[in-house]
Amino acid sequence: MVATSVHRRKKRLDRGIKARTDTIFLIASWKDMLYLLLPRMLPVAILLVLPVLVKGYWGKVLVYACIYGLLALSWDFMAAGGLFSLGQALFFGLGAYLAGILNYYLHLPPVVTVPAATLGGGLLSAALLGSVVRLKGVYFAMITLMLPLLFKKVIETTGAFGGTHGLPSLTPFPSELLTAYLAVGGFLGSLFIFRRVINSDYGLVLRAIKDDDRAVMSGAINIYGRKIQAIFISGAVGSFAGALMTHYYQFLGMSVFALDYSILPVAAVALGGQGTFAGAAMGSLILVPLSESLRALGGLRIAIYCGILIVSIIGFPEGLFHYLARKYHQFERVVEVK
């Protein structure tokens, strides 16, 4: 052996703390505690402070990011149960129209319309998609893609609920700050609850349906019932986002059924990573501000936006969140190879 050149290679080690077993939490030191808490608490703390710090245009962007974030979370929840949707706009639009109609025609205040639209939107979504939960994969996706477009065309041609002109001058939320906190609160709340639910026994059954629905059926579980429940939950979250948007804009138009609200959440999850909800949240918190900050570039905005999306999806096919989480738990060092 001639020892002129030294070969080096990177060695990766997983961090050696197993802080969590199934039911027992064992915390060794404040360092370990920080190690676990920091990546969870820091983003939450930042999001809670942002509404106070950020006003005006970027304040709007924050609300917008949270609204898309809610749609992305709602998409990820359905996907966890094996329901691949291309129609978050359906939930969004149903919530928006319910809130708008209740406010415009019945003059109900947002404190009534938002919860009513959330619940009603969830129920309507479950009723509309309940009959097609037996369809799988792309067939189910096609139906979800078509429904919002169908609603849009019906409103356009029949002129129902303001038709192409929409319903103007709806009641706004009392203050900008309250709106921002509603959006951030709803977003963080949904994120927290979804992450809890998916790791409970209920979530386990849902994930199992995605893996192998026949095995779940042989366990005497009504898989279609469970799927409809998942659509209800997902639909309610999407409708909440729609209702929020309607009162925020003080205007309701058929654009709430637009394709954007179906595609952007999927893009956000593709960027952030599927299955953890944190990925969906992260994706939308990156995509929406990114899209806004590119606005200065004018016409090329969408092209650059798409380019970034494509590169990141090819570069991090597992999703940005999964990549970062993995790196966070790894040491990397260079060792000599003899």
Binding site: D201, L204, A208, A215, G219, A220, I221
Partner: peptide, 8 residues
Amino acid sequence: IIPLCSSR
């Protein structure tokens, strides 16, 4: 857990 979540 799956059969144990059933109504049966």
